[in-house]
């Protein structure tokens, strides 16, 4: 059960961060679901060109990139702006965030497919108002700050200085809290799906040719 996340905020002050930036295509050649931590934000994190299989220690590190510096290399919260995760449907983008240790991404909006993918992997995408995003940026831009995200009460807290309530559908919150297997849940409706399918076969037989 995961209803409370506490971690350092890594601010990346950019909008439209697409999934090609979160993880470049080279690493999509992997057939595994894990092991993407060293490739997160690869183009920004390193000064050389990587290949799937290369480890962080073999790479030329870009020290200016926030996630390469302590304590941000242990951040659990990523703070960014508009339209995070736009572009390609690659779930590898979420796997890379998850494997690096990011558990919450805060943005003013998200790409639709990325947003869905997050909930399948225990990464919480939080949509906040632009003014709240601004507030978090000014809070975190100069010094590392640790915030807590209470998923049950739907609130972000920073000491006694800041509290931001967020909207999140209960079912989405539950997916993060309990990490439910959606296939198992859907298969409980097998009979319903079968029935629907039979009707459709009757009314639209050309689809089943």
């Amino acid at each position: 059960m995961k209803d409370f996340i506490e971690g350092i905020v890594a601010p990346i002050d950019r909008d439209n961060i697409d999934t090609d930036q979160i993880i470049p295509t080279e690493y999509l050649k992997s057939i595994k679901k894990f092991g993407y931590e060293d490739y997160l934000f690869d183009g920004w994190r390193y000064k050389d060109q990587g290949r799937l299989g290369m480890k962080k220690v073999e790479r030329k590190i870009n020290q200016e990139f926030i996630l390469n510096n302590s304590p941000y290399d242990e951040s659990k919260v990523l703070l960014t702006r508009d339209n995070f995760g736009c572009g390609s449907s690659r779930e590898h983008a979420v796997w890379a965030l998850r494997d690096f240790g990011i558990e919450v991404v805060i943005a003013s909006s998200f790409g639709d497919i990325f947003y869905n993918n997050c909930f399948k992997n225990g990464v919480l995408p939080l949509k906040l108002k632009k003014t709240e995003i601004e507030e978090l940026f000014s809070l975190s831009k100069d010094n590392p700050v640790t915030i807590s995200v209470n998923i049950k009460d739907k609130v972000i807290l920073f000491k006694d200085k800041l509290s931001i309530y967020f909207d999140l559908d209960d079912n989405l919150a539950e997916r993060i809290i309990y990490g439910l297997d959606e296939i198992d849940i859907t298969l409980k409706d097998s009979a319903l799906i079968k029935e629907f399918e039979e009707d459709r076969k009757e009314s639209n037989p050309w689809i089943f040719e």
Binding site: I113, K120, N121
Partner: peptide, 20 residues
């Protein structure tokens, strides 16, 4: 018609349906 992530690819393979 819409693009989906890999977890959803698995879901569609297994259940012929999509939760959206």
């Amino acid at each position: 018609a819409m693009g989906i992530g890999t977890s959803e690819v698995e879901h569609v393979l297994a259940t012929q349906s999509l939760k959206v």
